[in-house]
Write a protein that binds this DNA or RNA. Structure first.
Lengths: 347, 347
DNA sequence: TTGTAGGCGTTATCAG
DNA sequence: CTGATAACGCCTACAA
């Protein structure tokens, strides 16, 4: 009934518990025959070491903590999934902590598990506070950042500025000059001002010698509703833009909807480019910038694992590339019959 | 540098470790003054008990395990989120295990944490196997099911049959008689044959005295692409349906797209109803059945917590109500401008 | 190469 | 009410 302990295995195998322990932890100081025998017995008894008991003398829990904002957001989910994939074969468990609103952030940071509870942390899209960094440092626990940079900590990021520039360059390449930005409102979770996507947008315009216009730049939060409202404003201008670059696919959805309601054809009257490449983007034919979310999670987890093995290793700063995915809403190549997207007819 | 241990607190407070332990666990057998003093010292030293050390004599880890299929699916995410909300104030941690394909299921079940690793489990949309149930039973660990029923285990479910009937009744109420079903293919994760939604569909037709037609019933998996293909087939019939009920919003998306491509107006030529009420449904104006996913998670977690405190408690079987959300794709009532009309309760 | 013993931080029991 | 002290299951010197 009770789980077998290491002692049971030792007795059953006729060896000392030290030997069993060595076999299980793969120590080379065991005779080959002994090892085989012990393994046999352990398997037969269905022995599984208690992680709590193991954590005690080792001083390590084999648990990793990840702190992520807005758990239900597609971006977060994908990153988490990537982390899980990387951790799957590593016998580390993952504890996920979600920060649902900015006020919660400091509380969660403060409650970040004490050493012994957790062996390391992963911070996603969240700028670390000084105390948090100090906490992990003095505790000797590795902390890895995803989608955020910090000089002394390992990180995995995407160059959002370059990604945004890519998108806007694409629009310029199609001949657009009146290009609007539906950017994001100040992100309450990170401190990245001005926003990287906006910087990329401006850079692309400048490269092409296009004068940016303030009335073409709107910032809203990441929702279809907000995108919708922003687009309404843009379309109400005397010279409305012929193309719109959105800081998220969610906003782009709203932009498409507004265009439809105002009778504008996409991409004939107005081209739309989103950001992230969420699932529905492909389905709606939305041209967008693909952010390698899952890969970000994977690489971050790998970085953490590596730092765990080699604590003194200087922090890596990995930067992944985003790619532009051209679909129908930006009216790619001439001669290609553009389908109107589903979103437009439904509503 | 090292974390303070209970011994440090005891020494600093000038008491025995037993007393500190009692104070911290809220035992009433401590003098009020002693208690206050010990708390003070503990706070001052920033003492945090080691969960590993605590787990050892207690035989409980304070970790709960949740096994969920297809982690990235909206349904799973929402349920998990509900669970987290319920657990947030309970100092239990959550370890999430995802089953990404049916082959993985048994492996994950087999690896279900041994007692001592975990204090209980939550199974989402996954029919438990005999061995799994036995495993938890003999280990004396509570296991709660979400979105699945099993006589001897507590569960939280939604009556999918009633929910589906509701949707189809709505269509019938609008005057439709040629109503198609885009159902789900056999679910590799659960064993629910015939599918509850299909049963509900058939029941609603029968109640209304409508003869079900085999050619109106298509089963596909939960993807827009599959829904799209199914709709193409339906539209190719000599007498195509005037309404389609889909077993998921994902399929409904594809159905809408197919209708658009074939030049059918929604809802004038064909009405469409989805299932789940995913985020984008509201945005696309999709009439659908709202499944209380988050609430399912919450209630499930609460059930688990309760069983943890009271192990002998007979299993509760909680059944939550789904509601119909009428939006544009079913063309509600003439003149009625409401996006969401009165939600109707079921069950 | 292997067995033994001490210790990891708590809880729980049992005398005081 | 409170303070020792024996587990809890495992790891790791250390001794053999």
């Amino acid at each position: 009934m009770r789980n077998p302990t290491i002692r049971d295995v030792a007795r059953e195998a006729g060896v000392g518990i030290g030997t069993v322990s060595r076999v299980l932890s793969g120590s080379p100081l065991v005779a080959e025959t002994t090892r085989a025998h012990v393994w046999d017995v352990a398997r037969r008894l269905a022995y599984h070491p208690s992680s709590a008991a193991r954590a005690l003398p080792r001083g390590r829990s084999h648990v990793l903590e990840i702190i992520v904002p807005l758990f239900t957001r597609f971006f977060s989910i994908e990153v988490i999934r990537g982390i899980e994939e990387a951790l799957a074969r590593s016998d580390y468990s993952l504890v996920i902590r979600s920060v649902e609103d900015p006020g919660e952030r400091n509380r969660v940071f403060r409650e970040a598990r004490r050493p012994g509870q957790v062996d390391g942390g992963l911070l996603v899209s969240l700028t670390p506070t000084r105390p948090l960094v100090a906490h992990f440092r003095t505790a000797g626990l590795p902390l890895v950042l995803i989608d955020v940079e910090y000089s002394t900590l390992p990180s995995v990021t995407v160059d959002h500025e370059a990604a945004a520039r890519l998108a806007v360059q694409h629009l310029i390449g199609l001949g657009h000059e009146r290009i609007a930005l539906v950017g994001r409102a100040e992100d309450p979770f990170t401190l990245d001002v001005p926003d990287a996507r906006q910087r990329g947008y401006l850079a692309a315009l400048q490269e092409a010698g296009i004068q940016p216009r303030p009335e073409y730049q709107r910032t809203t939060d990441y929702s279809p509703e907000a995108g919708n409202a922003a687009m309404e404003r843009l379309l109400a201008l005397k010279r409305p833009p012929t193309a719109v670059f959105c800081a998220s696919d969610a906003q782009a959805l709203g932009v498409l909807e507004a265009a439809r309601r105002r009778g504008r054809l996409v991409p004939e009257d107005v081209a739309v480019v989103g950001y992230n490449d969420v699932e529905v983007a492909q389905y709606l034919g939305l041209t967008t910038v693909r952010i390698p979310m899952r890969a970000m999670g994977q690489r971050g987890a790998e970085l953490l694992l590596r730092t765990l093995e080699e604590p003194e290793r200087p922090p890596d700063h990995i930067r992944l590339a985003a790619e532009l995915v051209v679909r129908r809403t930006s009216g790619s190549l001439p001669g290609q019959r553009n389908q109107r997207s589903a979103a437009q007819d439904i509503a």
